[in-house]
C-alpha cells in the first residue's frame, strides 16, 4: 500500500487549517506592531535598554545626572 502524504482529512479540514493559519499570522502581526509602537513611544531608547537589562554605563550621560 502506497504511503500517501496527503490524507483525506487534510482536504476536509483545509478550511479550518487555513483559518488557524490566518489567525496565527494576524496574532504575530499584532504583537509585532505593538512592539514597534511601544518602543517608538518610549522616545528615549535608553528607557528600553534599562527596562529589563542592567544599565550600561556607556549609555548614561557624562554629567552623571542619571
Amino acid at each position: 500500500m502506497a504511503i500517501r502524504v496527503e490524507h483525506e482529512v487534510h482536504g476536509r479540514r483545509k478550511n479550518r487549517n487555513y483559518g488557524v493559519l490566518m489567525l496565527l499570522l494576524a496574532f504575530i502581526a499584532i504583537v509585532f506592531g505593538l512592539t514597534v509602537v511601544k518602543v517608538l513611544q518610549l522616545g528615549d531608547l535608553r528607557e528600553f535598554e534599562t527596562f529589563d537589562h542592567v544599565a550600561r554605563p556607556q549609555i548614561v550621560p557624562q554629567d552623571g545626572s542619571e
Partner: peptide, 11 residues
C-alpha cells in the same frame, strides 16, 4: 468520515 466537520464560520 460521515461526521460533519466544523468550518471557521461555525466557530
Amino acid at each position: 468520515d460521515s461526521r460533519y466537520e466544523a468550518n471557521m464560520g461555525d466557530y
